Every structure is written in structure tokens, then in C-alpha cells.
Amino acid sequence: MSDLFQEPDDATPLVPAERDGLKLTWITTRADLNAAEQDNIDAGAAWAFRSRRANILTVAFSIALHRQMFGQVWDWAGHYRTTERNIGIAPYRIGTETAQLFDDAAFWVANETYEPDELAVSLHHRLVFVHPFPNGNGRHARMMADLLIRRLGAPPFSWGSNRDDGVIHDIGELRKRYVSALRAADGNDYEPLIAFARL
């Protein structure tokens, strides 16, 4: 078996039926899959940042964004997961919890409940916590936060891409720091995640 579906220990593994949803038959290695997904994510980002939708804080937009980010690679893109995961809520709760999240986020924006960074990072964290899709949840949640921070008029997030501080030099270390920040946010400490988003 190739390394095609090998995930980091803290990533969400795909179940066999989801693996069968791979659309591109030429993909045989993890590097191929990563490249194909990145090309699709770039196309999804272009679509999202061109979007003229007045309100991005909706279930419909979130689903459409996931489909735009992963739909060229996976046939389940834009569909909620139906299986349990090592992270996230039970599948039957996804629809309700996601709708509640976007209602909450719209309220936060309308009432300026939080500063822009905390608001966008809170949206990101709760989306990751729900983990609505079979895969791509972190990337999708970061894109939603990026879109929101832009609409709030704040500078864009870097999500660790400004790594000239001498602290982080490889993707493994970057991922560890991201996961650690998410875990801190699970305990209602959002400062590490905000710092990571601005790293």
C-alpha cells in the first residue's frame, strides 16, 4: 500500500468509503494528493475572495466553500460526514451545531461582541470543533476565518506562514503549534490561536 492515505497522528483519517471518493485516478502518492488538493484549494480561494455574497456566515456558503475547495478531488466535498471521528461532534448533530455557529457568529459581528481577530479565530475554532466534513476541516475553517477577517477590515492572517522568527522551520513543528493552540482554545484560551494566526 502506498503512502496515499497516510495521515499525521493528529489528523482525521478517512474511512474506506470516503477514500473511494477520490476522483483523480492518476493520484498514487501522498505528494500527488497534496498537490491536487492545494491546486483545488487555490481555485476555491479565488472563488471565495471574488464572491459578492453579502453574508458569508451561513451554512449554505460554508458548504459551497468546502465544495469549491475540494470538489475537483473528492466526490464528498460539500457534504457533511456521516461517520464518527477522533475529533468533532456526533454526525447527527452537525447540521444543528453548524447552523447555531453561524447564527452566533452573525450576532458577534452585528453587535461587535469581540475584536475582529478573536471573532474570526472563534469562528475557526468552533468549525474545527464541530468537524463537519470528512476531511479538510482545518483548511476550510482557516479559509472561513480569512474571509471573515477581510470583511471585518482587519489585516489578513498568516497562519504561521511568517516563519522568520527563528522558532518554526518545518511543517511538522508548525502543525504541532497549531494543534496545541486549538487545544488551548478548547479550554477557552484563545490567545495562543490568535497568536498563531498572526505568526
Results as ranks from 00 to 15, higher is better:
M1F: 14
D3H: 00
Q6C: 01
P8M: 10
D10K: 11
D10F: 08
T12E: 14
P13F: 00
P16M: 04
A17M: 11
R19G: 07
D20H: 15
G21L: 05
G21C: 04
L22I: 09
L22A: 07
L24V: 07
T25Y: 12
T28V: 13
A31D: 12
D32G: 00
L33F: 15
N34V: 13
Q38H: 10
I41T: 08
F49L: 05
S51M: 08
R52K: 14
R53A: 12
T58W: 05
T58K: 05
A60K: 06
Q72I: 03
A77H: 11
G78Y: 09
H79W: 07
Y80G: 09
Y80N: 09
R85P: 12
P91N: 09
G95W: 01
T96L: 13
T96E: 13
E97Y: 08
A99H: 04
V109C: 05
T113N: 08
D117M: 00
V121Y: 13
S122G: 05
H125T: 02
F129C: 05
N135S: 11
N137G: 06
N137P: 10
N137D: 10
G138C: 01
G138V: 09
G138M: 06
M143N: 02
D146L: 06
L147K: 05
I149M: 04
A154M: 05
P155Y: 10
W159T: 10
N162S: 11
R163W: 15
G166L: 07
L174V: 02
S180P: 02
R183I: 09
A184K: 09
A185N: 06
E191Q: 14
L193W: 00
A195E: 11
